[in-house]
Nucleic acid binder design. Structure first.
Lengths: 340, 340
DNA sequence: TCTAAAAGGTTAAACGATTACCAATCGATA
DNA sequence: TATCGATTGGTAATCGTTTAACCTTTTAGA
């Protein structure tokens, strides 16, 4: 089967304690014995048994990452950034999908706690996290939130510069001569709220009155990209077009943009000649459409990296309540394409 | 901190062995004592320590899933199907990305073996897996391959019906009147080989001679979707267009289709009037382009599920060499859209 | 009533590491 | 020379379970 530390010790003619000390550099060992141990290790192709070590040390070296919706590519990019940083420090992310369902999210968290992760990174489905307190109880477990701000629970938080991103985008539309700019969001969470605020600020600063008929919210979030094409944002777009006055549409996130663009295309609207279009969140497919679509690009990889760094910091320093919580904003940038 | 089995035993007034037996239903216990134990469990909010159990039982209840390229959505769908089945049997997938690099793949496998997974599902980057024998050595570890056939190592294998899929697609193009049909593949692996064979069979059956100038292979695989737009398949498409005779292009996979379509669009080619287009592998963005793009759709979720089922079977029966290896084909279907 | 078998429960040895504590050796110093 | 401290190594307890083996009772059948 597999060699254990005992057999290494026997082959090297020392005790298991010494082998352990050599392996972990946790005590001085005479060079001679050290090499004897090392030779035994390579000879037996010995690999430490992580379960035994973890049991003894009381840690798992895994960080649970609870993702709101794996169908949304955005979260995958976060996961990649996160993984990169965690691996560097010997930790490993454990990915799990909530499919935009609160009850699945809770189930996932329970599961991860049961498998004794050392930390939790959460991209929330909805904002309420009062349940987390009960589940975590009084053990040391750092929690980092990304993408949406939770309520009822405190932890580190990493968000994009939502307000500024939306502001810049709408300002750009205004600069191109648009005054009748509509906003199509989706679920009304803290993040979407900030984007709406940016949208309003751009209008107000330009002296354009905010027309609440131009703001469409409350879409149902779906897991299926294909369903999204004819989902709420599709019909909301049609409603806006029927007003007859809108000359530009800004979509509040990547999921909403699917329905918006599908509608524009199916209604035969000339983009950008008749209606200009822009969206929050960049995505690969925005480059493949005719016209290609302008976007406020987040840096999801960066968000993941920051989340990883903060997690590692907490893990190493066990400093969760020493200095309050981090509240990081990762910048966005405007990518202009053909749609405006 | 957290309650252990000992405290449950003390509270219930029994031995730890009895608690364990109640928990695992591994021995008869008088109903009365059983409820005493159960009450103690809920009262202390006792959760079993998975590391201790795993150490004792010598299993981790995790299955490593080594993905060739997480930027390719196809693998994500496989992962979802896999996860679904594994969770049902109390196992959990551990996802890890090889970024299309053989050396990262090997690193990943080593990592997973070191963390003592109970099984391995692999979507290979390249086909050579002779290294696996050495790494696994002589322990019981089921290995299931998906998407590409490995060489140098035997395991269960789950593939799409590549030959038939390509055959049907090209046959359809021929039925629409095309005789000058080109094929753009990418890396020349077993899977792409099968698709080429399907392509050739369709032509031959229709009495159309195979023109080897129409077959472009050997593209460099990239992880970046954006780079792929102007990668090898882009220039291969231009070469084909310069021949002046091609009336239809069939793309061998979803990655190649990105470059092909980008080229068609940037060269101002009318699709499907001047050149028809079709691709192996369905993807969300194929529905958002103008025109939308026809595809041979795999069922990645189904592939993942089958992989999960087979893995579970092996795990339960420990029957890896009793009955040879599975060799499953998951069907494809033609999705016709505007591009042909 | 006696015996065998079944049932209910406990003891203690693992699993494979880590680590506090102890013991021996050796120079160097007072 | 006796002592001190550093260095090197070993002993054994521990982490939280599982499980084989064993000991008592009960139960059932004759």
């Amino acid at each position: 089967m597999k060699a254990s530390i005992k057999e290494v010790a026997r082959l090297a003619g020392v005790s298991v304690a010494t082998v352990s000390h050599v392996l972990n550099k946790t005590k001085n060992v005479r060079p001679e014995t050290r090499t004897r141990v090392e030779q035994a290790v390579t000879k037996l192709n010995y690999q430490i048994n992580p379960m035994a070590r973890n049991l003894r040390r009381g840690e798992t070296k895994t960080i649970g990452f609870v993702v709101a919706n794996m169908a949304n590519y955005y979260y995958l990019d976060i996961a990649r950034g996160l993984e990169q940083r965690l691996l560097k420090s010997g930790y490993r992310p454990l990915l799990i999908d909530s499919q935009e369902e609160k009850h699945i999210e809770i189930e996932n968290v329970k599961n991860l706690l049961a498998s004794a992760v050392d930390g939790l990174v959460i991209a929330p489905t909805t904002e309420d996290f009062s349940y987390l307190k009960l589940l975590i109880g009084r053990r040391h477990l750092p929690v980092v939130f990304v993408d949406r701000r939770p309520t009822g629970f405190e932890g580190d938080l990493i968000l994009a510069t939502n307000e500024q991103g939306a502001y810049q985008a709408v300002k750009m539309l205004i600069a191109k001569g648009h005054r009748e700019v509509a906003f199509i969001g989706s679920r009304y969470d803290s993040t979407m709220m900030e984007r709406v605020i940016g949208y309003r600020r751009a209008l107000t600063e330009a002296g354009i009155p905010v027309n609440t008929n131009y703001i469409k919210m409350g879409a149902k979030v779906s897991v299926s990209l294909n369903e999204l094409r004819h989902g709420t944002s599709f019909s909301q777009t049609r409603e806006l077009l029927e007003l007859g006055s809108v000359t530009a549409i800004f979509s509040g996130n990547n999921l909403a943009s699917i329905g918006v663009f599908t509608c524009l295309r199916e209604m035969g609207v000339q983009v950008p000649q008749e209606v200009a279009f822009m969206t929050f969140d960049d995505d690969f497919w925005l480059t493949m459409t005719t016209p290609s679509i302008s976007a406020v690009a987040q840096k999801p990889g960066e968000i993941g990296k920051v989340a990883g760094d903060i997690m590692i910091e907490r893990l190493l320093k066990q400093a969760e309540r020493i200095e309050g919580y981090h509240n990081v904003r990762v910048s966005t940038r405007l990518i202009l394409r053909e749609s405006c």
